[in-house]
Design a protein around this nucleic acid. Structure first.
Lengths: 199, 199
DNA sequence: ACCCTGATGGCAGCCACTGCCATCACCCTA
DNA sequence: TAGGGTGATGGCAGTGGCTGCCATCAGGGT
């Protein structure tokens, strides 16, 4: 048997999730997290760069998954289509138990500091997608806008996925958000009271 | 004459900008900023919630300006059009001297912490725009996507405005970005090697 | 038996940020 | 002229995130 129990990183993630949820993010100290995981505070900071990062381990996996998805798309597929195609399959890199995502979402929603971290994760996601598109020969600003549009679609679809009572088909939600975005960008003049809108 | 020189907040902002630029953000302590402004560190934290916020005083003005612009648009104007119309006039709430914006941009580009703050400022901007649109009777997800699309357009236009050698017409850059976004969202299948792209 | 490596613990220290109280010019009022 | 209220500031001690440095010790190779 090893000197230390394995899975230190996972223990820290679980301990942080529970403590942040029970006592609040600000009220929880990194020392408490480490203690619950059976480790020293110094070890916490060997696994995570800071107190927030312990909640964002999944962001890296999502980024890799989407980048691979974009790069795997046939060359004839339009930029935004390639992004949407990757997003449609993203359910498989989200936690199997949706309640974990919702718990995490509640914690983040209660703390501006954590919202900042989430925003920059999405931003780096956009940058990664944009880079993949450029690698396919897409011009710079087109790649940038396709990536940003894809992220906008993802945000709306993901939030809806969390809010719905059932674990709905993620790809379907992505497609619906895309259709709404297309309606928005092609809408020129509309009477907001009378006319029906997309969605 | 008053006991203390007026404009403490502005002095702190200028001192921070200079010190962050000369010695780097991390290497600068809040005590140094306060000293250069002729104040105590305690006073720094009375004017700004944290060390980063001293660089983002303009974000609040921009948000108010855009919200007013959206609310001032005629009821018949489509959601994204209302947002774009407000963005087109945003030059007037940016610093008169463009070089200040570029200096600030360089500082932010060099520090992930500052990029986080900038991202959440843009995010709260999006939320404010979305709220204004809902106030005009626009359905929730349509408002959300129109706001996100507007922010994407703004990001690209603003970055281009900073990069161009001359201080180009901001409204023109916004319109061009919008056209590119429309092209991206309506593009379905394209051969990235042969065909010309928007932009 | 020896050494090397890798994950950890312990400790001192920096600095962002806060709570609390004192200071003191200015202003209002009697 | 005296007194009291207000608002911006300074000072100081304390918490806690985060880091650098060094020690520890199991496992594996030679």
């Amino acid at each position: 048997m090893s000197r230390w129990a394995p899975g230190a990183r996972e223990r820290l993630e679980m301990a942080a999730l529970q403590l942040y949820d029970q006592h609040g993010y600000e009220q929880t100290t990194t020392t408490q997290i480490a203690e619950r995981a059976g480790l020293a505070q110094r070890t916490f900071f060997r696994h995570f760069t800071d107190k927030r990062e312990v909640l964002f381990g999944g962001a890296g996996r999502l980024r890799e998954f989407l980048v691979e998805g974009v790069e795997a798309a046939p060359a004839a597929v339009a930029p935004l289509e390639a992004v949407i195609g990757a997003l449609s399959a993203a359910r498989e890199v989200l936690p199997a138990e949706r309640e974990l995502s919702r718990q995490r979402g509640r914690i983040i929603a209660a703390n501006p500091e954590l919202q900042e971290r989430e925003q920059i994760k999405l931003s780096s996601l956009s940058a990664a997608l944009s880079g993949s598109l450029r690698g396919r020969g897409v011009p710079d600003r087109v790649a940038r806008l396709a990536a940003e549009a894809g992220i906008a679609v993802f945000k709306v679809a993901y939030e809806r996925w969390l809010d719905e009572p059932e674990d709905e088909d993620f790809a379907h939600l992505v497609r619906e958000s895309l259709h709404e975005l297309r309606a928005v960008t092609s809408m020129l003049v509309v009477s907001p009271i009378e006319g029906p809108h997309a969605g």
